[in-house]
């Protein structure tokens, strides 16, 4: 029924969209892999980052791609501080309390944004937002192609950090064996905060990549949370490569099921996949079997 004229662009679009999903999921999977918590504040932090990118454009005239350079360290710091001074102390190391604290944070952030900036939907109009690159029958919007490239670069950088730096090694050590890591002199609270910071920094980049083609309002980030969870599960909780490949895969699946089942019912494709993976390969498609 559907010809390649529509199929190929749909796959390519899925990959572009999936890349941004992957970046959001990267943040989530890092945090999950190390802290073993489900971070309910992820969506709200993404919204906050989108607001930051918006105002960087509005007030300082910064292109979101330039703004990302400044926002990434700022959001790293923010994430570090949140974990070190709020989530960690308030949660007393209990999973259920972390859950509530991140939930509380989400409510606070989302509504503080609502209070400060009102509910208006805000968009930015970049001169090149409507430029496209033609690939066969497909028109790929320039901002989405940029996003794709940046995400791949960030994922590689993150992988290198985890693999080769001392901090990366410490993070992996804490993820694998917290007690052992503590005994060998690793400051676990610090590593937790660093991980949370890295996860939040990913959101800052994702926000800057999204803004040229999306919009921001106080609830904008929530739209990406469930899909990010799906990717985290699919790629194996805690796996950087898993999140990247999972994100691209989910992007394509979403695109295909949207095409064949319609946008509303199409969302089911993702959750069915999610359920199947959980049932039959809970460590993720790429994860090691535990």
């Amino acid at each position: 029924m559907l010809s390649s004229v529509i199929l190929i662009p749909a796959v390519l679009n899925g990959l572009m969209t999936g890349a941004v999903y992957a970046l959001i999921a990267l943040g989530l999977t890092l945090i999950y892999g190390v802290l073993h918590i489900i971070n309910f504040a992820h969506g709200a932090l993404l919204t906050a980052a989108m607001f930051a990118a918006f105002f960087a454009h509005q007030w300082l005239g910064l292109d979101p791609y330039i703004a990302a350079i400044g926002l990434t360290p700022i959001f790293f710091g923010l994430g570090y501080g949140l974990q070190r001074f709020i989530i960690g102390p308030a949660a007393h190391g209990e999973d259920r309390n972390i859950l509530l604290v991140t939930l509380g944070l989400a409510v606070v952030i989302e509504n503080a944004l609502l209070y400060a900036f009102r509910a208006d939907t805000r968009t930015i109009n970049l001169p090149y937002a409507f430029n496209v690159i033609e690939v066969g029958s497909a028109f790929l919007a320039v901002p989405r192609v940029i996003a794709f490239v940046v995400v791949i670069a960030v994922a590689i950088a993150l992988w290198l950090i985890m693999r080769w730096t001392d901090t990366g090694k410490a993070i992996r050590a804490v993820a694998k064996e917290k007690l052992g890591a503590e005994l060998s002199g690793i400051d676990v609270a610090h590593i937790y905060a660093v991980t949370f910071g890295l996860g939040t920094a990913c959101l800052a980049i994702a926000a800057c990549l999204l803004l040229p083609t999306y919009y921001v309002n106080p609830t904008a980030g929530n739209a990406f949370v469930l899909i990010a969870f799906t990717i985290v599960v699919l790629g194996g909780m805690g796996s950087v490569t898993g999140a990247l490949i999972g994100g691209l895969f989910v992007g394509v699946v979403e695109s295909m099921s949207g095409l064949y089942l319609g946008e509303s019912l199409g969302q089911i494709g993702i959750f069915v996949m999610f359920i199947l993976v959980l049932l039959f390969r809970p460590s993720g498609l790429l994860g090691e079997r535990t």
Binding site: L103, G104, L105, A106, V107, V108, E110, N111, A112, L113, L114, Y115, R118, A119, P218
Partner: peptide, 11 residues
Amino acid sequence: APGLDLVIYGG
């Protein structure tokens, strides 16, 4: 004030 009550609630 929209939102402010929920900020306090979450806090």
